[in-house]
Design a protein around this nucleic acid. Structure first.
Lengths: 335, 335
DNA sequence: CAAGATAATAAAAACGTTTTTATTCGTGAT
DNA sequence: ATCACGAATAAAAACGTTTTTATTATCTTG
């Protein structure tokens, strides 16, 4: 009873098997140097005692953990499932385990990264400030960011090329025959939303099209904000655009709902296209065309790069192009 | 350059500050025994070198990590966000960090639990077999299960009382004045779905109501299966039930859609009630009344119990009652 | 001013591994 | 019979901490 509670260590196995600690270690890590009988006897004892190596001791000695860390600030959003799944699989393919650190506390995060709790870190976490990022850039274990651009000796970034995404959306909509466009902004401080907008507008300009300010609506990445903006627009009686590009899917959905509730058919009168490909785009009616980041690809690339950095490679910036997922909310304009 | 790469340890700080290792340790853990000047000098050096304690060394010495582990087999479902959020907060409130172990590999899971990678484990992971569970029941670090009932010296379960939930749904619908009921099954092997059904039917029986077999439909926990079953039912021309209880939300949503597409108004002609309170229940139209497990409560209780077990308490079974969340899909029967 | 208390720091032990080095013992060759 | 060698096992060192114990040097105090 009382000693049930003591943890079984390699020492216990050694004593029980009447053998030295190092011999037990050799048996467990099948270093081929032991007499077969001894080895078998030791393994038998270890099994009987349910011995499992203490990872703190082992990792300390090894100077490595065999674990990659994914540092998230939240897990509730629609992306995280897909992202972490893909990262999990990529880790497995590379012989690593995955641990997800859910934390908003930059100090904890730093303690875990610098403290060698894992061998490498994938970071999608706004909590980490620029000073700490500066440390990680050159010191400690390798890091890969998928939420910000930051390259150093020890850190890489794998980011969606938002500018390219904006361009692609423009080309996609132009090819469908649309001429008049509306853009729904994201959060104004958001870098990616800005890039998407720039790419979108630049590409339209190439086609000789400009978008006037009253066709650039507030969206704030939120369903409700977009809904309200579009509703207000409809009330103003201005001519409808042919197509609306929203800075993310949630605002695209809000916009689509506002059109529907305002008696405007999507996609017959107005096309709507979002960005991100969250699950909800498939569930609403009409389903929403979007351009996606391909999180699963991003996860795989992040892990691959991380492993390479662990093996000595230095950091770099990797950009990924998105792809458009056509759904019900867009269609060719009937002449 | 070359020695940039070496990891900074407490030794480096000691050498740089011209002081012994133990003195550095005392300075960092502000044991109040050092001359203020010495302490300040040491902290200054540590800061300059970006020293962070190696957690493997520290945890090894401490025999503890200050970390609780959440062992998930997946993260994509609708519950996980809410659950992990609540667990995260509960951990923080108890002074622990949280790490999420995403893994389908029972051996890895066992290695981490038995290997003291964390101080306690919350398990929602079907990958762990009954033999391994048997080991954890009495050995290793404390564990709390939220997906199965298993109580031992070192393990507890925090489960939703599904039978009670089924009863509550029955009472709720009876109070609304409904008389004729339909039940949509979950997966037949699922313990909870079975309990819900039993509680529901038992409570109806108390009111003198029975449900005939053709009003018990297949649902399989899936939207489509429920949709198809209800559609088939509608085609059969049998009289409509007043209310439908589905074994989970997804099948409730599928049923609701089937009624709508079959020209039957929810809730005017038929009420629909699900179970789980997934996010989608709020997003569909009509929104779906449901009974929820209160994951956030479950998370908090799981963590509390886990911490108590770490402090010596032994395991127990904790059951939680759900609560009904009324939404648009249910209303009092007119007449 | 000697001696004991106190403040400040250093040394050593321990946590549980793995790995390098050392020991023991039997065996075959000279 | 001695030696060298190889097989088998054991001992010791190391990983980076924290903590307990030891060592100084400095003060008090009678």
């Amino acid at each position: 009873m009382s000693n049930e509670n003591r943890k079984i260590t390699i020492k216990d196995v050694a004593r029980e098997a009447g053998v030295s600690i190092s011999t037990v270690s050799n048996a467990l890590n099948n270093v081929n140097v032991l007499h077969p009988d001894t080895k078998e006897r030791i393994l038998e004892v270890a099994r009987r005692l349910n011995y499992t190596p203490n990872l703190n001791g082992r990792n300390l000695k090894a100077g490595a953990t065999g674990v990659l860390g994914l540092f998230l600030g939240a897990i509730r959003g629609p992306y995280y499932g897909e992202l972490s799944d893909s990262i999990y699989n990529a880790c497995k393919d590379n012989g690593y385990e995955l641990e997800i650190f859910l934390s908003y506390d930059a100090r904890h995060i730093m303690a875990n990264i610098m403290g060698h709790r894992v061998d490498g870190a994938i970071i999608l976490n706004g909590a980490i400030g620029s000073d700490q990022v500066e440390v990680l850039k050159n010191q400690g274990i390798p890091t890969v960011y998928i939420d910000r651009i930051l390259v150093g000796d020890k850190s890489s970034s794998v980011v969606f090329d938002s500018y390219n995404g904006g361009q692609k959306v423009a080309r996609f909509l132009l090819e469908l025959g649309h001429k008049r466009f509306m853009f729904i902004e994201g959060e104004v401080t958001n870098y990616d939303a800005g890039e998407r907008k720039k790419g979108f507008f630049d590409e339209l300009k190439k086609a000789g099209i400009t978008v006037s300010d009253d066709y650039i609506l507030r969206g704030e990445f939120e369903r409700k904000a977009a809904y309200d903006s579009v509703t207000e627009f409809l009330d103003s009686g201005k001519p409808l655009p042919d197509a609306v590009f929203a800075a993310n899917d949630l605002s695209a959905i809000g916009a689509s709902e506002a059109f529907r509730d305002g008696g405007v058919s999507v996609p017959d009168q107005v096309n709507v296209i979002g960005c991100d490909d969250i699950e909800l785009t498939r569930l609403v009616s009409p389903s929403i065309t979007t351009i996606r980041t391909f999180f699963e690809k991003q996860g795989v690339i992040a892990v691959d790069k991380l492993v390479k950095m662990i093996n000595g490679e230095s950091g770099e910036l990797i950009t990924l192009n998105g792809r458009i997922i056509p759904r019900e909310s867009t269609k060719a304009k009937d002449s």
